[in-house]
């Protein structure tokens, strides 16, 4: 009986030794993107900034979308630059360089009703295929529509249409999917 008690004591001790490991809290969420900022600089020096910010990540609050700098102007060529941030880190973590560094495993897509024109890729990864961080966009019509910006990881860049920015056959997994309601006004 004494031996058994010793054994039981040993088991309990071992258990609590193992339990006594570190128990740190997780204040940050890895890989989290809270903010997408698309900056469009026009040939007329107009700067439009489209932002989608979701500070509670997978939490219940919807992202807050803001567009500053006015409407797009028909016929003006805009140079786009997109930025992915984690604003919950202090200081804010810019994830864009990581996306560019792993460029072959990422691609951003810009979907816009076809009458408003299309985004054209203006950058390349190490395989000379687009990542979609910098783009150009020239509105071809006045009107209103939804711009959906999607960042995928592990897309199949060689699938039909993907290099041209068509997401249909891209596959992969979505990191970011934001919508902006944009308006193209006449260029007077």
């Amino acid at each position: 009986m004494y031996n058994q008690l010793k054994l039981i004591a040993l088991i309990i001790t071992l258990t609590f030794f193992t339990i006594g490991c570190d128990d740190h809290d997780h204040d940050h969420e890895g890989e989290l993107i809270t903010t997408v900022t698309l900056t469009m600089v026009g040939s007329n020096n107009q700067t439009i900034v489209l932002t989608s910010r979701d500070l509670d990540g997978d939490g219940p609050n919807a992202p807050i979308v803001t567009i500053t700098g006015g409407n797009f102007l028909n016929g003006v060529t805009y140079t786009g630059n997109i930025q992915f941030l984690n604003e919950l880190e202090d200081p804010t973590e810019d994830i864009t360089p990581e996306v560019i560094a792993e460029g072959t495993a990422h691609q951003a897509f810009y979907q816009l009703p076809s009458n408003l024109g299309a985004f054209v890729y203006n950058d390349a990864d190490s395989n000379n295929q687009p990542i979609g961080i910098t783009t150009t966009y020239t509105p071809t019509n006045i009107g209103n529509g939804n711009l959906r910006v999607t960042l995928r990881h592990f897309p199949n860049k060689n699938a039909s249409g993907v290099l041209q920015g068509n997401i249909t056959n891209a596959g992969g997994e979505t990191d970011v999917e934001v919508n902006f309601n944009i308006t193209v006004s006449p260029n007077n």
Binding site: V36, S52, E177
Partner: peptide
Amino acid sequence: FESTIRGAF
């Protein structure tokens, strides 16, 4: 539904 920056879930 909840909307997040990753899209809707």
